[in-house]
Nucleic acid binder design. Sequence first.
DNA 1: CGCCAGATTGAAATCATTCAACCCCTGTGG
DNA 2: CCACAGGGGTTGAATGATTTCAATCTGGCG
Lengths: 235, 235
Amino acid sequence: MLIPGRSDRYTQDVFRGLDDSERTILDAMRSRSISRPPNRVIAAQGEIGIGLLVVSEGWAMRYREADGRRQIVDFLLPGEIIGLQAALLGVMEHSARSLTALQLSVFETRLVRESFEKAPNLALRLARYAAAEACRIEEMMTVIGCGEALERIGYLMLSLYRRQSLHREVDPRDCPFPLRRQHLADALGLTGAHINRMLNRLRDEGIAAVHGRRLQILDLPRLEQIAGLNSAAPG
Amino acid sequence: MLIPGRSDRYTQDVFRGLDDSERTILDAMRSRSISRPPNRVIAAQGEIGIGLLVVSEGWAMRYREADGRRQIVDFLLPGEIIGLQAALLGVMEHSARSLTALQLSVFETRLVRESFEKAPNLALRLARYAAAEACRIEEMMTVIGCGEALERIGYLMLSLYRRQSLHREVDPRDCPFPLRRQHLADALGLTGAHINRMLNRLRDEGIAAVHGRRLQILDLPRLEQIAGLNSAAPG
DNA sequence: CGCCAGATTGAAATCATTCAACCCCTGTGG
DNA sequence: CCACAGGGGTTGAATGATTTCAATCTGGCG
């Protein structure tokens, strides 16, 4: 078992169940809702004051880039937030880009500071969200640092499947998965060619298959075993 | 240039320059100061309520372990905090272990909740600290995912040198570096044997050398070039 | 129909691991 | 003061995983 924990379980609806005064502050800061086509830069490394962007529909990714190389740090699914780290640090230390068509709720940057001053519960939620995200990154880092190609891929498949399951009923035998080979490669520290070979293996062995933009998990227990994320995990 | 950013620069003294009321809360929560010998477990994955441990002297590390494999997620230097993520998530998702003899200031777990309720400035500092740490991890993840062995080692050397420089004057030609080959290996996703070969290369080329528990940076510009962390970096 | 990005594949090359052997401190006990 | 033990450190050779590169294929789309 490569990864004993399961950082997924911390994922939460940050803005659900706030009290009235907190909801008032939150609503006051919601400036608008915007949409973006697939594969567009949402915010670039170095930008300031982009606000908080809450994904309401679609997938995006956070990544760092240099030298023609790219590391995808995390994927962003519905309910997740772009720009919280930037709001706390003052500047985007990574870029964000849409993978699919995207629907975003925009909140003003000062929401963060205001919530710390006037809405401690909301502030705590934001902090917990940030911590959960950090925890997930650390788990991913462990998989990249310790795991072989197949383990990495299996882990990412499961992680993304589970994150989707938290928000809506998802069929493991056919769930959204809008990532190209190169996305998997850049997220996992591998090459597209090698990803392809490993995906072939998973398909040929009847474990999992990536079709167009869908993932089919054909043998969940075996995939969990490969990923090292088996059900013996705490939680 | 592999890494355009330099997350080091966000490192801060979390508890410096608070106002009186905030300092009162902080002092009320400081329970004691403890010391630990080198190479001891400070807190283990799965523990709850360990409090906030502020390193006042010595080095430690945060790591995840499974299957006989280990990923060192981060090192902890004087001024840095063990247990903030655990305080926010409710449980340690990694373990922490001393590298050298360690001096720790212990704060009660409820400091976090109390500060969010009564000391918004302090809470914001904690959140910023967490964000800065997360940013550093993401940078490290990028180096592991995109960089070759030599780049990874060079990056880690520079990063640790710079983090030390933030708190005290440090001589790059002879600074503390209490990491064995295996620590470097587990932090960078490599093996001890390969680390050794790469360290030989850095020494033979007059770039950097790791002696007992010291690091000698002999050619800083060249090391920066190797690490991809050159001075063109913003900030 | 033609185009093009992405997918697929094979063969060669490279990087890193493995494994086993040996070395070299350093600390400890006699 | 020496012998010994043990944990790292060091090294080479063989192996293995992944990359590279180039060529070919494919499917979606204007």
